[in-house]
Amino acid sequence: MEILKYFYDFLPAAGMTLQVTAAGIIIGMALGLIFALMRLSKFKFLSYPAKFYIWLIRGTPLLLQLLFIYFGLVGIIKLDQIPSAFIALGIHNGAYIAEIFRGAIQSVDRGQREAGKSLGMTNWMIMRRIILPQALKRSIPPLSNQFIIALKDSSLASAIAVPELLLLARQYGSATYRLMDFLAIAAVYYLTMTTILTAIANLIEKKLNISDYRE
């Protein structure tokens, strides 16, 4: 079957999609946590830059951010396509994940913080030992949603010629005039990955609910 051969051809591109997504998620999680904590800080010199970052990133399209980082930063630092995509996706997801973490942190009952204080814990200790573990658990559903968005958003990296699924589908399509077939192959890969991602998220959620604690 010819179609199976094409599926095989698309495997490296699917791998690239996964890499861009993983980089976006990992960088995004790190940035998200840092900016969520900054945003919640009582110090303006921390909260204002975080607010600015979130405002800037959520207020502009990802495609623009990608192009800006790849072409716009040439004067400062020349980045290849793939690192540009990693960074753009990371910065983009960071803003959304920061808001997810912020909401989850704020949703933890304030009695928890007071209990920590009354034990003589410092603010940082309370955050690390008491608030964050509870907040991270609550973040799992919105995070898994964000991860699926990140997976699909990685297709925009095709605009700067990162050899991921959508770029390959379009290249094969224009070479053979059978674009629909190749889009369908890409779609199957995307659906497989989003389905697996969702299943993993559900599993984690279930596991935490059963073996850990209920609220």
């Binding site: 009952d109 928890q112 007071e114 209990a115 204080k117 009354s118 034990l119 003589g120 509870q134 658990k137």
Partner: peptide, 16 residues
């Protein structure tokens, strides 16, 4: 605060 223990109306145990 280490010298002063506090017990709250709603317990505020750490659920995790």
């Amino acid at each position: 605060r280490r010298e002063v223990g506090m017990v709250f109306q709603h317990f505020n145990l750490f659920p995790h």
